[in-house]
Write a protein that binds this DNA or RNA. Structure first.
Lengths: 232, 232
DNA sequence: TGTACATCAGTGAACGCGCGTTCACTGATGTAC
DNA sequence: TGTACATCAGTGAACGCGCGTTCACTGATGTAC
């Protein structure tokens, strides 16, 4: 910190705030460890003394909360970009799922921060109201509604419930990839597409056919001879 | 620690080891926070001085590793018990999934410890070799094979890949419930069964019908009029 | 145009805290002779 | 049967560390008169 960075001009103190947030994000990415993101480490990386952080954030939690908001925004942007190239409403859900997992794998410690942490405030914390109200989840719900309007999912289904199902499915793969990198993920791509296909087509089936068991077994009567293959 | 617990007899020092493990598990459950499980806190709860822990465990990591093993064993036991009452091989998978999520919700901090932690050792750690070799995952693979033998899933599918899909699906719900308790989970049960049904029947469909898209649309031609419902 | 002064954007040093771990020790228990 | 002694199962005090946060301060920047 010997030479240090130049002191900001009168009205430009807020510029440091952005640098602090960027430093925190970079530290997460480079160290791959939330513990490495201490107030001291962030200040050091910016080239500023430790107490300077407190000129811009009330405390460490406030700093991390703002990082969370930025990560959620980036996740949303990634999913929207992927969905833009979708061919139809159902493919839009699929592309979102793929983009979700890819984002998590590309930014594991960021993902861990926003989706795998113990909630600080057990009561009040929805999953960051911003995410629900205008973020990635809201966009997912809109995509589900478009599927309903296209007749691909029953219109009397509650989009919120379906959204949770899809979110949980994508989150399952993403967080398992992050928490258990030692698993033999050679065919991780297969697991992802397989899950998405299963969930997607299972969703359509159970949604279009309340009696999906019957539909399935009527299909099974003309199914390929899986049993014989098993008996080889 | 003033009166303390009686000192163990000559050959009985190992009894303290079990008490330490139990104390660590109880602390996790009661505080709901891994940070609360310090070597000091564990020793205090057992009624023993802090260095006494080191007579039975090389360091804190070794202690936590043993707790992990116990939690994995308990998870396996819960799933096996649930599967015992299954009606058929497919229902066995379903019961395992339900039991998995129930275990996680009932023991959130234990689940977090074994399934949501950053891996200590990035390289060597498989997901605890014990789990893969003889634990819950191995039992899941066996259950999948029984489905294949019954002709419910194609025999030429790789059970390991399907196992990952199912594990990820259950883990998705479990870890989302734990990490985001603030979400409106009023119908958590619906999300669970909905996911299990979707995955299960999607798995059967995509597995029995490589051309599941065709099968789905042939079904769709005789589908209930979802489109009209959407147009009301 | 010059100067006193308020304010803004920081700094350096220190606070108390809890942590994992180590060290030198103690005292009861059992065993060898 | 008695006693010296090795060992086992611990204890008490202390180590250094990094953490979040606070306090009193400094010095450049702009403004009022």
């Amino acid at each position: 910190m010997s030479p240090g960075r130049p002191r900001a001009r009168r009205g430009e103190g807020a510029a440091l705030r952005d640098e602090i947030l960027t430093a925190a994000r970079d530290l997460l990415a480079e160290t791959g460890s939330e513990e490495a993101v201490s107030v001291r480490a962030v200040a050091d990386r910016v080239g500023v003394s430790t107490p300077a952080i407190y000129l811009h954030f009330a405390d460490k939690d406030a700093l991390l909360a703002e990082v969370c908001n930025q990560v959620f925004a980036a996740l949303d942007a990634a999913m929207e970009a992927a969905a833009a190239s979708a061919e139809d409403p159902m493919d839009s859900l699929r592309q979102r799922g793929l983009a979700y997992v890819q984002f998590a794998v590309a930014n594991p410690e960021h993902y861990r921060l926003v989706m795998m942490r113990r909630p600080i405030d057990v009561e009040s914390i929805g999953p960051s109201d911003a995410m629900l109200a205008e973020g990635a989840f809201a966009h997912l719900l809109a995509a589900i509604r478009r599927c309903q309007e296209a007749g691909l999912i029953r219109a009397d289904e509650e989009p919120f419930g379906l959204g949770l199902v899809l979110w949980a499915a994508a989150h399952g793969i993403a967080s398992l990839l992050i928490a258990k990198p030692g698993l033999p993920w050679e065919h991780a791509g297969d697991v992802i597409t397989r899950t998405i296909d299963s969930i997607g087509c299972g969703l359509m089936l159970t949604s279009l056919y309340p009696d999906y068991q019957g539909a399935l077994s009527s299909l099974s009567s003309s199914a390929p001879p899986a049993k014989q293959a098993a008996e080889r």
